[in-house]
Simulated assay, not measured.
Amino acid sequence: MTVRILGIDPGSQRTGVGIIDVDAAGRITHVHHQPIVLLVAENFPQRLKVLLDELDALITRFQPQEVAIEKVFMARNPDSALKLGQARGAAMCAAVLRDLPIHEYAAKEIKLAVVGKGGADKVQVQHMMGVLLNLNGKIQADAADALAVAVTHANVRATANRIGISARQVWSRK
């Protein structure tokens, strides 16, 4: 059975989305990726509306069964952290409104899972997503991060299935 996973890298200016399919053997296939540019809106509340509308349209179009989202990290600027949290909340609402299960991963966990080190930079993540998903050309950074979230969840999910426990239990055992 193939499962479609929507990965989300939330942002208050751009939110990355990446969609992959993972089969029963754990093989991953790229489906779609893009940044959702929120700066087209005239104010922050309208950015959140753009995010909700765009994610709803992507969920309708691609029909994912699961969602993986990056956890918020502490930003240097409290205002930025609040806006990031609000964008993340809006993204989660888009999934919850469709009754999709949400799995959360910290940035360091994602980088460790896809690059091999928790302190990897964006260029390394972009490169690994290209290699792992057999994509040509440079992948936009937010979209690459979203693909990395989805790939992380696919790998955690495959490990959980192999050992007979939930994906949440796999990550909690680290």
Rank of each mutant, 00 (worst) to 15 (best):
R4C: 11
L147C: 09
R61W: 08
T60M: 07
I163M: 13
G18H: 05
A144K: 05
R27A: 11
L51Y: 09
V17K: 10
V170M: 10
G7F: 02
H153Q: 08
H103Q: 11
A57I: 07
A57N: 13
R61D: 14
V3C: 00
A148I: 05
P35Y: 03
G18K: 03
V67I: 15
V151C: 12
M129D: 10
A95W: 09
K122N: 04
K108E: 11
Q169D: 13
C93M: 14
R47C: 08
H127T: 10
D79P: 00
V131Q: 12
G116H: 03
G130R: 13
M1E: 11
G16C: 07
D99P: 06
A148V: 04
A94K: 10
A94M: 09
T29M: 00
D23V: 06
V149D: 04
A25I: 02
K108H: 14
H30L: 03
H33G: 05
R14F: 10
I19K: 07
M74T: 13
R47W: 04
A141D: 15
V115E: 03
L38F: 10
E54T: 14
A113T: 11
V22E: 08
G26H: 09
D53S: 14
L135R: 15
A57V: 04
L132D: 01
L55Q: 14
D53W: 01
T159F: 05
A167M: 12
R168I: 00
V149S: 06
L58Y: 13
D145V: 04
G7S: 01
K83W: 02
D79Q: 12
L147I: 05
I102C: 10
L52F: 10
M1R: 12
P64E: 01
P64L: 01
W171R: 13
Q34Y: 02
C93H: 08
F73E: 07
A95M: 02
K111Q: 09
L38G: 09
G16N: 06
V156D: 00
A91S: 15
K122Q: 11
V31D: 02
M128K: 07
W171M: 12
R4E: 09
G85E: 08
P35E: 02
V31N: 07
L84K: 05
G18Q: 02
V72T: 15
L84H: 07
G116V: 05
V125W: 01
K49V: 14
R27N: 14
R173E: 03
K117R: 15
I110T: 10
Q65N: 14
G18W: 00
A107M: 06
A167F: 12
Q63A: 14
L97A: 15
D56P: 03
H30R: 05
N43I: 00
Q13A: 15
G118P: 15
V31M: 01
K111G: 13
V151R: 09
N77Q: 07
T29H: 06
T2D: 11
R4Y: 05
M1N: 11
G130N: 04
